[in-house]
């Protein structure tokens, strides 16, 4: 699905990623954990194609294509999706109109016809249920006046609508209470299949009780310093990140 090799990146001249290597296959869920400032959000921004981030070294191959050569919109059209840590409010643009535009531009890129209005609305109804999103919210402006939980659920709703091959969840659990967390996790579990993959970025182990990862990676100082299975996440939770910091600061 995606192969990241020796990825170095910086923002405003400040180096944040220092050689990331990561291989993800279809059907897998990878969790990326790490202390604040370790580069987790930078990694998601770089993958999504944020123009402020500069890749200084390395390569990313996404389904056979050189991802770094693609603009953000073309990455999305190729099947990459980023669920934002802080979803953006867009006053005046209705959720429905926004999604219709997105789906049709993605379809056009992939040589498909526009989606019929009837099919689109049926899909909206079905996917809304998945994340228990109030029908009224889909008619409102994108994220405008949404609560923190509603915004996150709206991200997963968009994920469900756009059906990406690879979805990156950037701290989707932050700011969620346990009920909302379960709804979001449940949505992801329902969407998971053998043809897609997920990268779940999180600070806490809590989310991984509900979304069970196949692999867990620890990011520190812009590098993956440890990889393992979900047991490692539990271990991290018990010991905290200080242990990791000590170990790797010492090596440095």
């Amino acid at each position: 699905m995606i192969s990241i090799k020796n990825l170095h990146a910086s923002v405003n001249g400040k180096k944040i990623l220092n050689g990331i290597n990561l291989e993800i296959k279809a059907g897998e869920i990878h969790a990326i954990m790490g202390p604040n400032g370790s580069g987790k959000s930078t990694l998601s921004s770089v993958l999504a194609g944020h123009p402020d981030y500069e890749v200084t070294e390395g390569e990313i191959i996404f389904n056979g294509k050189n991802l770094l050569e693609l603009e953000a919109e073309n990455r999305a059209r190729e099947g990459l999706f980023l669920a934002f840590q802080y979803p953006v409010e867009i006053p005046g643009v209705s959720n429905i109109n926004f999604l219709k535009t997105a789906i049709n531009e993605i379809r056009e890129y992939n040589g498909l016809e526009q989606m019929a209005a009837k099919d689109f609305l049926a899909m909206v109804k079905e996917k809304q249920k998945l994340v228990e999103l109030d029908g009224k919210l889909t008619n409102r402006s994108v994220n405008e006046g949404f609560s923190g939980g509603e915004k996150k659920r709206n991200e997963i709703f968009q994920l469900a609508m756009l059906e990406p091959k690879l979805a990156i969840l950037d701290e989707t659990d932050s700011g969620l209470d346990i009920d909302a967390l379960k709804i979001v996790a449940n949505g992801v579990n329902m969407l998971k299949n053998k043809n897609n993959a997920f990268i779940v970025i999180t600070h806490y182990q809590r989310l991984l009780d509900y979304i069970i990862p196949d692999f867990v990676h620890v990011l520190y100082n812009g590098k993956i310093v440890k990889s393992g299975t979900k047991e490692m996440a539990l271990e991290l939770e018990a010991k905290g990140y200080d242990e990791v910091k000590k170990e790797f600061d010492f090596k440095k």
Binding site: H50, F84, I90
Partner: peptide
């Protein structure tokens, strides 16, 4: 907002 829309496939 522009980047957000781009990440959803909107040019």
């Amino acid at each position: 907002a522009l980047f957000y829309l781009n990440t959803r496939g909107i040019g």
